[in-house]
Design a protein around this nucleic acid. Structure first.
Lengths: 309, 309
DNA sequence: ATTGTCTATACTCAGTTTGAGCATATGTTG
DNA sequence: CAACATATGCTCAAACTGAGTATAGACAAT
């Protein structure tokens, strides 16, 4: 059990801060949308978590509802050849409430600027058929062996829902990594020396886009078994607003009636009284999140066939 | 976006290496079961993941099936007052196959030595009723306010399945943290200055037991939606062996017929030919994991009510 | 005032999945 | 061969899901 002090190592925190405003999921960025906010490890006071929380709240002047650790990146070649020093990046995912105006420094950009192929709310986005699928086919064909060719084809089909495979919104990270491997995103081309290469979707510095992909995948998975959507909602909301928020995150449209049945039978919301008039059509009742359920129930998707109740 | 070099920081890797042998889940330890194996960050070559993998395989002389990052701990007071230097620990969860004999240095200890309250395969373990529940009640009663008292009672009941609440095997970490907070485990007492205090379950150094709890919780959750059990099984096995392995991890018994129905309809296994004679009763067919499903299907528990197929 | 157009909300219904058992098959041991 | 022990097949009702249809309550244009 060797436990020696390491050589000096650079440790950064990187935050993926998400919010849904106007039906669009957004992420907080710096440098005109080319980077995620990050800072040195010092800012952590008592704990990483608390330090990051203070820092974000100071920056956005807005309370941060939810914060969870995402992943720690430490691969040697992460940032490309440019950095000789060893860097560790601890990334976090935070959820913020819809805000009308955020103070100065914060810029918010839509998720789907970076991942145009991830938004399937209006059906499969054209970029898949026009750009990605052909490029992925080329990449598959370029494989050295027959086995590898077929393997690549299968990966592409499964990830992107080609050849009749179903779209799976949780595979955001795998899709990005596939595009990276296939040289279809600028980050890879850049690493190969093509400085000004264009690629699919908007690029970010270093591996920030990969971190964002990790965050999206995590949130899309989590939204299904934990009541985290409410962290993104104002105190009261209509069921349709709630549904639109979930749809924005998942990048898919949901069945309205079944969605509200689900909300009701899970007792996640309760009527807050009143209704919206802002919208066309019959006014919708306002609801609020039942905070009590977090206490009452221990959320966990039991799927094991247990014996004897 | 300040990006400055940190002060010198110690970075360790900590591995939670799990295996199931003889129907018992075990974890690899060092120091006679009082610590998890850990090492300095240097051992990471190309990537954290690969470095840790090499190191473990060299240590155990056994291939490591599965490895995933668990959590990065960096709280200032993690290890108690003893360490002034800032330490970051990146923890990993690895799964190893059942092994007859492991080489020298490796010791394996049963999970449930450290968490006796987590094994419900023979019903709720007595330690809950005899020791933990009373201690938790005392702790709840000691709360300063009425609201806090009731809150503590509710947390205890929900975590430990008291007062008619259902047992939820995924709450391993929350339970440990509750016991820590309530001063029922030795690690907490030790931090408070009671050097030789006895507590529930076997203690470990620093926060290693908390890391183990994190690993157990993660694995118990993951086993339900990803085919990771097979990483713990020999190449061929009977369905009952498979079930026992899941039961060992979950700490609960499963309904036999429904378990095999699940395995079959998910097409996770295929007959390998032959049968066991080692067991009493009618010989069971041998099965093997269908590696193909990993390729075929993109595992993800869709639970959203999607619109229009 | 009537009609059309929205969106909200209620209800239906068949197909599937789950939880819980019963029944039968096929070995070994005495 | 009987007694046991495990394996494996099958049933059945309750709960859950996917996909609609139907009705209600608001506003705007005719």
């Amino acid at each position: 059990m060797p436990k020696s002090a390491s050589r000096s190592v650079v440790v950064d925190l990187i935050a993926v801060l998400a919010a849904v405003t106007g039906g669009e999921p957004r992420v907080m960025t710096v440098e005109h949308g080319s980077a995620l906010p990050s800072g040195p490890f010092e800012l952590a006071h008592r704990s990483l978590q608390q330090g990051l929380r203070d820092w974000v709240e100071q920056r956005t002047h807005h309370p941060l509802g939810y914060l969870e650790q995402l992943y720690t990146f430490a691969d040697k070649d992460r940032a490309g050849a440019e950095s000789a020093a060893r860097t560790i990046s601890i990334s976090y995912l935070g959820l913020a409430r819809e805000q009308a105006a955020t103070a100065g420094a914060a810029e918010w950009h839509g998720w789907y600027e970076y991942f145009p192929w991830e938004d399937h709310r209006d059906g499969p986005p054209p970029v898949i058929a026009t750009t990605l699928a052909p490029a992925l086919v080329d990449w598959a064909e370029a494989a050295p062996s027959v086995a590898e060719r077929s393997h690549r084809r299968q990966r592409a089909a499964l990830s992107f829902g080609l050849d009749g495979a179903a779209w799976n919104e949780e595979l955001t990270l795998q899709r990005y990594e596939l595009l990276f491997e296939a040289g279809i995103v600028a980050e890879r081309l850049r690493r190969e020396g093509h400085a000004e290469a264009a690629g699919a979707g908007r690029a970010m510095i270093a591996d920030h886009r990969r971190i964002l992909a990790t965050a999206i995948a995590r949130l899309r998975a989590k939204i299904k078994y934990r009541p985290v959507v409410f962290e993104l909602m104002p105190p009261t909301f209509t069921l349709l607003q709630l549904q639109r928020c979930v749809e924005a995150i998942a990048g898919r449209t949901l069945h309205k009636q079944n969605f509200r049945r689900l909300m009701e039978q899970q007792e996640l919301v309760e009527e807050a009284g009143g209704a919206t008039t802002e919208t066309l059509g019959r006014p919708a009742k306002l609801f609020r999140f039942r905070h009590a359920v977090v206490e009452e129930r221990a959320f966990a998707g039991t799927k094991l066939p247990l014996a004897r109740s």
